[in-house]
Simulated scan of single mutants.
Amino acid sequence: MVTLKDIAKKAGISTAAVSRILNYDPTLKVPESTKSKVFNEARNLGYVKKNVKRKNSYENIKVGIIQWYTIDKELTDPFYLSIRVGAENFLTKMNVQIFRIFRDENNYFNKIQNLDGIICIGKFSKEEIAEFRKTSDRIVFIDMFLPKIYVTSITMDIDNAMKDVIDYLVGLGHSRIGYLGGKEYTSDGEYYPDKRIIGFKNYCNQYNIFNEKYIIEDKFTIESGYSMLQELMKIKTKKPTAIFCANDLIAQGAMRAATEMGLKIPEDLSIIGFNNDQGTAFTNPPLTTINAPSNKIGEFGARLISIFLQEKKVHPINITVPCDLVIRESCTSPKI
């Protein structure tokens, strides 16, 4: 059997150089004539390159995915489910051992011990973050904004998304714009400020159209969207002609309530959602919404973990993912 040593002897160079040439090493600096000579000698001698089965460097790696939702709640929220699936799909291709953990599980802190990396999806308290960091510094938090970057996080560019929403509605002629949203809390009961309501107020104020009476916050559910729209439309003053909903579940509930109230969408009421959940293109009418690339966000989190696993020291970073306005058929100019 022909070996690299045989080719090296014929070509008049070292065995190591032959190996690097046959493997197309871009860092090797040798004349093209030398490369050609090596390939010719290999062909003339009948050299066959071995297919070396390499051991997967990740096969003994353990990565935990911690979901702040319960498993039942996750099933009803396409956004967080999609993030987890995106992360798991990437880790599965890496042949990583995946440990799926839901925060409501008993003694879930015990389950994160001896993990090589952690992906945390959702909102977590300062105490929880401190516990995670004791386990590993290879941590990625997804959909949790931190005012100070001391752990790695991936967040959405909600501020520019809200600017796009208000610019779009004002451009259609709306000046009475409502907001239906939800409130979220960490495990210690601390309120987690939603950047959507912050951006909404900011950009409405820039157009001098903000009205506190048009703001209602409850939960991020279809049922809540239904009841919030009913409540909003009870106001005695001029009613809003357009509604921004902080997620697509709220938007779908609001659309149902509006229809039952005899309001036509978008002729009587324009509605915009957030997330671009699967199925929003098939509501009646198709929902205009902000696209939050949840599956990709999960994949990005897993990619970061794969990079951190190769580093001796992890330097925390924040990645902000853009969110685009998807214009469909649920918005139009208001009636004069």
Rank of each mutant, 00 (worst) to 15 (best):
R100G: 01
T221W: 01
D159G: 06
S82V: 02
R133D: 11
V170M: 07
S153T: 15
C120A: 15
F132E: 02
N160E: 14
I216Y: 15
L81W: 00
K148W: 08
S153E: 13
K195H: 12
I154R: 13
V165Y: 00
V140Y: 10
I139W: 08
D143K: 08
V85F: 00
D116P: 07
Y185N: 00
K163D: 08
V140C: 09
C204P: 05
I215Q: 05
K123L: 12
G199W: 01
K201C: 06
G86H: 04
E212R: 07
T152F: 09
F220D: 03
D194I: 07
L91V: 02
K93R: 14
M156V: 15
C204N: 05
T221L: 07
I198E: 15
K126A: 15
N205K: 13
R103H: 09
F210S: 11
E88A: 02
E131P: 04
D137K: 15
P147N: 10
K219C: 07
M162N: 10
R138D: 08
F210M: 14
N208L: 09
F102Q: 04
M162S: 06
I197T: 03
E184G: 01
K219E: 10
I112H: 02
E212W: 04
L180Y: 01
F145R: 11
Y192A: 14
D137F: 05
R196M: 05
G117H: 04
L169W: 04
K123G: 04
A87L: 09
F99M: 09
I149R: 08
R84Y: 04
N89W: 01
I112Y: 02
